[in-house]
């Protein structure tokens, strides 16, 4: 019965879902290229909204009402709450200006292209095990994941690293909903809770770092290793 409705809907929904996937990748690249902290957070919020719409579409596709709940949750947590918290942190910590990069933007982006090729080539053989509507989604999710990872590597400021971390989480979430057409709500709730707690812990950590070093630049942390 579910299979039947998938077939009926997929003609309209799956192209839209594909465009959303493509959009997700665009946002990941934008995160990689963006220098301003405020814009980074805005992009993260957009990712959350994209995820929510994607989940809702998958819900429509499979006819599973739980996914609608999940979509609403995603929108409120990833689309609104987390960006707001980050924004709040930014204001409280009075971090301003550009993100320092360890590698210049063109090189980072060219590296990003290589990562996307790599991700697609890894994920391509797995498409055979997944429903036709989601072909290629796993590759995009993996690519977004790796790009977020790359972003974390190339930034120095703590806030941009947490943005990278949350983007990674988004990518995983995307893999779970879009590539496998939804995951159990309980798992999702668990993950969302984990991320939130992580965010709180890191937020507390930020204040600690700032109080100790008067800066959020992570390279100061290099000084607190044990001297040999």
């Amino acid at each position: 019965m579910i299979m039947h409705s998938i077939l009926a809907h997929s003609a309209i929904i799956s192209p839209v879902l594909r465009i959303l996937a493509a959009w997700m990748l665009v946002l990941s690249f934008a995160l990689l290229a963006q220098r301003r902290l405020l814009s980074l957070i805005r992009l993260l919020a957009w990712q959350g909204v994209t995820l929510a719409v994607g989940t809702a579409l998958v819900g429509q596709l499979t006819g599973d009402p739980v996914l609608w709940v999940s979509a609403v949750l995603t929108l409120s947590i990833k689309g609104i709450l987390m960006p707001y918290v980050l924004h709040y942190l930014l204001r409280r910590l009075q971090v301003r200006g550009d993100v320092e990069m360890t590698l210049n933007v063109p090189s980072t982006q060219l590296l990003g292209i290589l990562l996307v090729v790599f991700a697609f080539s890894i994920a391509a053989p797995l498409d055979g095990y997944l429903p036709a509507a989601t072909h290629g989604m796993l590759g995009i999710a993996l690519a977004a994941f790796l790009l977020s990872f790359l972003m974390m590597i190339t930034r120095r400021k703590a806030i941009s690293q947490i943005v990278g971390f949350l983007a990674m989480d988004n990518a995983l979430f995307f893999a779970a909903t879009s590539a496998t057409l939804g995951m159990p709500l309980i798992v999702e709730l668990g993950i969302a809770l984990d991320t939130l707690i992580g965010l709180v812990v890191i937020g507390v950590f930020f204040f600690q770092i700032r109080d100790t070093f008067d800066s959020l630049d992570l390279h100061y942390l290099e000084h607190i290793r044990e001297d040999k």
């Binding site: 292209i113 090729v117 697609f120 080539s121 391509a124 053989p125």
Partner: peptide
């Protein structure tokens, strides 16, 4: 082949 097909346009 899937891999080459995608890499060649690149």
């Amino acid at each position: 082949s899937g891999m080459l097909r995608a890499i060649l346009p690149l």
